Simulated scan of single mutants.
Amino acid sequence: MAVIVLLAPTGQVGFELARSLAPLGQLHYISRADVDFSDTAAVQQKVAALQPDVIVNAAAWTAVDKAETEAEGAYLLNAALPQALAQVAQQQNAWLVHYSSDYVYPGNGTAAWQECDQTAPLSVYGASKLAGDIAIQNACAKHLIFRTSWVYAARGNNFMRTMLKLALSREALKVVADQVGAPTPARLIAQVSCLALQQALIKGAQVSGIYHLAPKGETSWYGFAEAIFAFVRKKGIALQLQPAKFEAINTDQYPMLAKRPANSRLNLTKIEHTFGMQMPDWHGQLELTLEELLSSQTLLTD
């Protein structure tokens, strides 16, 4: 039975991984309450003591705008920590599963990015994630790096939950419509990670590499919000938001500290071909996640 160590089991992705990884082996959790993730030596010591066969890193700096002014913190969590884990994985002959971002790409054009495309991050956050990817590739022979986009879940702070809270309390709302990608639920990330990991444990280092992990299809942030509102209204939930006051705007009308990629489309051919998967459509995944959220009745309480 494989010994699996999961870092950050209470975050959006970590919570789903804790549920999905459990049947695969003996699962150990390491949270921020156990060790300071910015203390890479302490993390290495704690992980190595468990003698893992698999290390799954769900820890990350995710505050995109804050990274612009706190670059050191972003690089500690997004680059130094993955490097430290990669070193332990190499020493233990273990697999390292890690999560990266569409923000490593320049975000121009309209073609879906392939894993072999030139990277050129537009932000400190994106640069820190790319540094982590490179560090893992250089330090660890057995790794699965999943680049995801627009992550959300039924719990935690994310776009889906924010839009619903705003629509329940405001009559007017403006959402960016010129950035395009695929909203990716944390549940799907966890499920696909586990399916890929099961095969990696059998096939070995030949399947090591970077993979895009997202649903099929594409939409804008405005389209994402539009789909959210349409679904909850269909469920009989009354929103304060007035349809006539729900407006699409351009990125330059909603300035933020970190520059966002306009094109976050991810080509899924590699992950589907390597692991024999068929990625589902983003819209169906959104409905599943909304069903979970609405059944939990925690939208305004956590």
Rank of each mutant, 00 (worst) to 15 (best):
L6S: 01
A8K: 00
G11M: 03
F15K: 12
F15M: 13
E16Q: 14
L17H: 10
L17T: 05
A18E: 15
A18V: 07
A18C: 14
S20V: 05
S20L: 06
L21Q: 00
L21Y: 00
A22M: 14
G25T: 10
G25S: 12
Q26M: 14
Q26S: 15
Q26C: 13
Y29T: 13
Y29N: 12
Y29H: 15
S31N: 09
R32I: 11
R32W: 07
R32P: 05
A33G: 15
A33N: 15
A33C: 14
A33D: 15
V35R: 10
F37N: 00
S38K: 04
D39C: 11
D39E: 05
T40N: 12
T40D: 07
A41H: 13
Q44L: 11
Q44Y: 12
Q44A: 15
K46L: 07
K46H: 13
V47Y: 02
A48P: 03
L50I: 06
Q51W: 06
Q51A: 14
P52A: 10
P52T: 09
P52F: 07
P52V: 13
D53I: 06
D53M: 08
V54M: 01
V54I: 13
I55Q: 00
I55Y: 00
N57M: 06
A58I: 05
A58M: 06
A58E: 01
A60V: 03
W61D: 01
T62E: 03
A63D: 14
A63E: 14
D65Q: 06
K66V: 01
K66P: 00
K66C: 02
K66M: 04
E68L: 06
A71K: 12
A71L: 05
E72G: 07
E72R: 14
G73H: 05
G73M: 02
G73C: 04
G73Y: 02
G73L: 07
A74G: 04
Y75T: 01
Y75D: 00
Y75I: 05
Y75P: 01
L76H: 05
L76D: 03
L77P: 00
L77V: 08
N78S: 11
A80E: 05
L81N: 03
P82K: 06
P82Y: 11
Q83C: 09
A84W: 07
A84T: 12
A86L: 08
Q87K: 10
Q92C: 11
Q92V: 04
N93L: 10
A94M: 11
A94Q: 09
A94V: 11
A94Y: 06
A94K: 12
L96C: 09
V97R: 00
H98L: 08
H98A: 13
H98K: 02
Y99M: 09
Y99V: 07
D102L: 14
Y103M: 12
Y103L: 11
V104M: 10
V104Y: 03
Y105Q: 09
Y105R: 12
P106H: 12
G107Q: 04
